[in-house]
């Protein structure tokens, strides 16, 4: 059997089946939904950071853009929800295209510029002068399309597509070329890799999944404010989850989300500041002692981790 089909069968299929069946046995649907959203976002970060090395510190910009794309379609054009989710994805891609010049920056400059871009989009959307279009800082309410069950399954579908995309990257010449660009752009371009095209495609793909996730999130919660959907926590959580597990792998981000977001839900809600403390220490410990993520514990022993 091919590696790719093995990965699809043993990683993607069980994940989808588990998350499709869990709502029947576990009552806290919001929690399950958040797990799925973070799986999407962590894999989206994996696509751009893991395979190209660009750290998207303002990743939430795409998420929020997707949510507002959804909201504007529903509010002004009464579009059916699934179509509006797709529009959310398109809006995120457009934002991604607008931000492609940022890919010229390297290292920390890119991360900071990306963070600034996401905050700029937030303040743009939340501007009281645009109240007629985005409702400004007062938030939107989309009770007409409210349907958490459908939104949940839509999220599972997007998660399957995202993990599928990572499986493709992991097993295709395209993904290999991307990693070559990440390691040494000059050598890769000497070897005939079209660096710019590669980077832009990965960038837009990760924008697309975040936009779709944002649209579905808007569909699920139906009432939200700019500060909710542009909250920096989404970027940070997604990045930390992906790193904790280990980027440029299929399983790393999944493991990261399941473990860290699980811990978050166990202790985070009752005592947020102690959680923040533990979280901060955990992040620092991770960077200092395990910079390649949990999977490096296995790869160091010579085991192969997909």
């Amino acid at each position: 059997m091919h590696n790719a089909s093995k990965h699809l069968l043993f990683i993607l299929a069980p994940l989808v089946v588990v998350f499709a069946l869990l709502p029947g046995v576990y009552q806290n649907h919001l929690l399950l939904f958040n797990f799925v959203i973070f799986l999407i976002l962590a894999q989206g970060v994996n696509i751009i950071y893991g395979f190209t090395g660009y750290l998207p510190f303002g990743y939430v910009g795409f998420f929020g853009a997707g949510a507002y794309g959804f909201a504007i379609m529903v509010m002004h054009l009464q579009t059916p929800a699934p179509l509006a989710v797709l529009v959310g994805g398109v809006v995120a891609i457009l934002l991604g295209l607008l931000l492609t010049p940022l890919l010229r920056l390297s290292g920390a400059y890119f991360a900071i510029a990306n963070l600034a871009a996401s905050l700029a989009v937030l303040h743009f959307v939340a501007n009281p002068a645009l109240e007629g279009i985005t409702k400004g800082p007062y938030g939107v309410s989309l009770t007409g399309t409210f349907n958490p069950t459908h939104a949940y399954y839509a999220a599972v579908v997007v998660m399957a597509l995202t993990v599928g995309a990572v499986v493709y990257l992991k097993n295709s010449p395209f993904g290999l070329a991307l990693q070559a660009v990440r390691e040494d752009a000059v050598s890769a371009s000497m070897a005939g890799v079209n660096i710019i095209k590669m980077r832009v495609i990965a960038w837009l793909a990760s924008a697309l999944v975040a936009g779709l996730a944002g649209g579905i999130y808007a569909w699920y919660v139906s009432v939200f404010y700019p500060d909710n959907v542009f909250s920096g926590e989404f970027s940070i959580f997604a990045i930390v989850f992906a790193l904790f597990g280990g980027v440029a792998t299929i399983t790393g981000p999944i493991v990261g989300v399941l473990i860290l977001y699980g811990i978050y839900n166990l202790i985070g809600f009752t005592t947020p500041q102690y959680f923040q403390l533990i979280y901060g220490l955990l992040i620092m410990g991770l960077v200092l002692f395990l910079p390649a993520g949990l999977v490096s514990l296995a790869t160091r022993r010579g085991w192969h981790v997909p």
Partner: peptide, 25 residues
């Protein structure tokens, strides 16, 4: 480490979380 510039962003983000949490407590 392999990529200090990137990892520093995450490391100091962790530090800022710790400072913020301790101050809040």
């Amino acid at each position: 480490s392999a990529n200090p510039e990137m990892l520093s962003i995450i490391l100091f983000f962790g530090l800022s979380q710790v400072i913020e949490a301790v101050t809040t407590i």
